[in-house]
Amino acid sequence: MPVLEARNLTHVFADGTTALRDVSLKIGEGEFVILTGANGSGKTVFVRHLNGLLLPTQGVVTLDDVPITHNLVEVRRSIGLVFQDADSQIIGQTVAEDVAFGPENLRWPREAVQRVVKEALAVVGMEELSDRNPHTLSGGQKRRLTVAGVLAMKPGILIFDEPFTGLDYRGVVQILERLVRLHELGHTVVLVTHELEKALAHADRLVVFDRGRLAEDGEPTAVIEGVEKYGVRRPHKTGEELSALTWLR
């Protein structure tokens, strides 16, 4: 049963640019879905619709068969979106302050806020850094902080928009470890990336976007063979070696 569904989504920007054209996609509970596609193919615009940040020109997004516009606050709480640019997502001047931003908006009691902040920082391995100024953190730490900021709101679905961009090997591994762990804990994970070799082994599905359209959707082994025609690099190891497409050892 799909928890999150986009039906015939079309998005046209004010300047007339069509970013999405009739996109329909169902994401089931506990799935690990990778969305890929060339730059400008509509991936980021699409995931912003899933979180209700952008509203479609046509079509509808539903969560458990209820249009997300019925209760945007609850939708945003239960669908955590980690942005591509970590710096843009950081609002607090300390790590703990930033992680508390979401729970405080939800008006959770002070003790509950402190507890979830602690828990979220523990999940991303940043308990020791709770007093640090986020702007002094490394790229990988900033990315983990943004994950903690989303986790603190206890979402069931996690969307990561290009989480590996600009990270070194260690940074990618740290983020990927957390991402896989969260999936194992039962979260639905949607990962937007064009670096398939880093995480494809963990995915249940691979979805390809091309110029605003959903071009391919299926099992990674089936879809990966044709990704190059959509401007996505096909990793050398394919087929039975799909399990090798990860940066985790």
Binding site: L53, V73, R76, R77, Q89, I91, E104, N105, R107, R110
Partner: peptide, 23 residues
Amino acid sequence: QRTEEIVYAMESRCYSETRTQPI
């Protein structure tokens, strides 16, 4: 651009004017 990104980030984290009361 950063302003727009921060607005999106705040909205995605349920920005509200009635927040947890400080002690």
